[in-house]
């Protein structure tokens, strides 16, 4: 594991901690998309099925369990928590997730390495992760004056993807025969989706203003 991959994972971990902190400290999930969180839970559950039959390292196992549990925890807060659930604005969070999940499943059934249940589900999770942030970005666009922690959460999530790009470049240069086209192409699309957000995030940060995305 190289430094970019590790930094990427830590940024991913931090983004989730920031999100949980925001929800727990403010007892509010304003500006957080339940749809995106549910998509992430689906991504993690379909990707980490290998927890049941393959072991890579204690690090990997811990991170996989953390990602599954933490997204489950965020969903629980938004849906079930007495005070937090009242701050969820379902009227704004209207993205049709089936429009994302169905094409990803069709693509996973068509373009994959191996036509087995676990491999197709793994491929599905790679495709779905690439677009799972879209409901969150749409919600941010509808929210005037995004609160700082929610903005930081999305920024860290995007940062994690950018670090994974560097990780792949490093691996291409140092590991002979290393290639994974499905992951590279999906990951590049996933990172590109954040470009617009990055632009406005950095602009608002430099001008010392609250973040608000133009609609």
């Amino acid at each position: 594991m190289n430094i970019f991959r590790f930094a990427g994972d830590m940024t991913h971990l931090l983004s989730i901690i920031v999100l949980l902190l925001k929800i727990n400290a403010t007892k509010s999930c304003a500006g957080v998309s339940l749809k995106t969180q549910e998509l992430y839970l689906l991504v993690f559950v379909t990707r980490y099925l290998d927890l049941l039959y393959s072991y890579i390292s204690l690090y990997n196992t811990f991170m996989k369990l953390f990602f599954i549990c933490s997204s489950g925890c965020v969903i629980w807060y938004i849906r079930e928590h007495k005070t937090v659930s009242q701050t969820y604005d379902s009227a704004q969070d209207t993205f049709r997730v089936l429009f994302l999940a169905c094409p990803c499943m069709i693509l996973a059934l068509t373009v994959n390495h191996d036509f087995t249940v676990t491999e197709v589900l793994w491929t599905f999770s790679i495709y779905l992760e690439a677009v799972a942030i879209l409901p969150q970005l749409v919600l941010l666009q509808r929210t005037k004056n995004v609160d700082t922690l929610t903005g930081n959460y999305v920024f860290l999530l995007g940062g994690y993807r950018a670090l994974y790009l560097l990780n792949w470049i490093y691996r291409i240069l140092t590991e002979p025969g290393y290639r994974q086209w499905i992951v590279w192409i999906s990951g590049t699309i996933q990172t590109a989706i954040y470009c617009d957000f990055f632009y406005y995030y950095i602009k608002s940060w430099r001008n010392n203003e609250r973040l608000s995305l133009p609609s």
């Binding site: 994972d9 393959s54 990997n60 991170m63 191996d114 491999e119 994974y164 994974q180």
Partner: peptide, 10 residues
């Protein structure tokens, strides 16, 4: 082996 390597990332 190839397939296994591809799944070493999170």
């Amino acid at each position: 082996q190839d397939l296994h390597d591809e799944h070493d990332e999170l």
